[in-house]
């Protein structure tokens, strides 16, 4: 921190400068800040602000490549169309449901994995490595691998079920089972990311706290709820933000496992956006759908950020 007298000195110096370019040689803190942030701000506006504005603009247009006609302004037509589109509601509901199931699911499994990985193993690397593998696997690979696991005839899941004396399930022939298979896959795939963040949080908790608690006679469970959990809260919130946003954007796993089937019962909003833009080439409607998803993600992020601020 600059002291008060230093700041006055800098300002006096700046005011005494006669030529404008000397400001660059000896900038005030504010100018320096602006100069340093400028490249990032420009880059961000190029790769984020511009595409988002363009997306919102396209969403108010009638722009379909299959019509052969040039784009025309459509007002809120695309949004009005959306309200009475049953597939939009179905895919949005599926997305919300996937979020509500897989985010807490991944948190629980991830927490358990992190606590196990934090145990004092002699060799740490095999544990850490096995934590990393699901996270490092591309989503589409995970989807394809699990599609084979859950295949009704050749899949390992049904094989195990049959060996245990149950009847195999035709997973992708029923909305409920297909949905369950997708959620299980997403939880498997994403809990390692949760575990990694929570593990990092766990390692910042000083051992001395546990030692003190032990001296005071607190049991393992008590230690977990009184020390571990409260001190982990910031890491958990960060992990939840990331996980929830990616859950709202779920695409790869259902796309590779079921393509949204049977019917459209496991299609997500992201898949519907992809279908409208890439398959149907209806860029106007697809953009309107994407704006809705953008608003959803922003809303959820705002809620979490408020939670953090309230805690802080």
């Amino acid at each position: 921190m600059a002291t008060a007298s230093e700041t006055t000195l800098v300002r006096a110096h700046n005011e005494s400068a006669t030529k404008w370019w000397t400001r660059f040689l000896d900038p005030s803190e504010r100018t320096l800040a602006v100069l340093l942030l400028l490249p990032t701000a420009l880059l961000l506006s190029l790769i984020i602000v511009y595409p988002v504005c363009r997306l919102v603009w396209t969403s108010f247009q009638n722009l379909s490549l299959t019509s052969g006609a040039p784009a025309t302004f459509a007002g809120i037509e695309n949004y009005a169309l959306m309200l009475e589109d049953p597939v939009f509601w179905e895919t949005t509901w599926n997305t919300v449901l996937i979020t509500l199931i897989t985010v807490p699911g991944a948190l629980l499994v991830g927490m358990a994995l992190a606590l196990m990985a934090n145990l004092p193993f002699k060799r740490k690397w095999p544990v850490r490595l096995s934590l990393l593998i699901p996270w490092a696997l591309p989503l589409a690979f995970a989807g394809l691998i699990f599609a084979w696991f859950f295949h009704s005839e050749y899949g390992v899941v049904n094989d195990v079920l049959r060996r245990l004396g149950f009847e195999g399930v035709i997973w992708f022939n029923s909305a409920k089972w297909a949905f369950a298979a997708i959620c299980l896959t997403i939880i498997w795939k994403t809990s390692s990311f949760m575990a990694l963040i929570i593990l990092a949080g766990l390692q910042t908790i000083p051992r001395s706290l546990y030692e003190a608690a032990e001296v005071d006679g607190a049991g393992r469970l008590r230690q977990f709820f009184e020390i571990t959990l409260p001190l982990l809260k910031p890491s958990i919130v960060v992990a939840l933000i990331f996980r929830t946003i990616t859950a709202l954007q779920t695409f790869d796993i259902p796309f590779t496992m079921t393509r949204g089937g049977p019917g459209t019962s496991t299609a997500t909003l992201a898949m519907y956006i992809h279908q409208n833009t890439v398959d149907f080439l209806d860029l106007g409607y697809g953009s309107a759908l994407a704006v809705v998803m953008f608003a959803l993600s922003m809303g959820v992020t705002a809620v979490y950020l408020r939670m953090i601020r309230a805690k802080g």
Partner: peptide, 23 residues
Amino acid sequence: TPRYNEVSDIIRTTVNAVLAGQS
């Protein structure tokens, strides 16, 4: 029709849903 992809999607997802016993 230039909008054939949409027509196709409607028919094939319905056939799929009926055969799966979904509707």
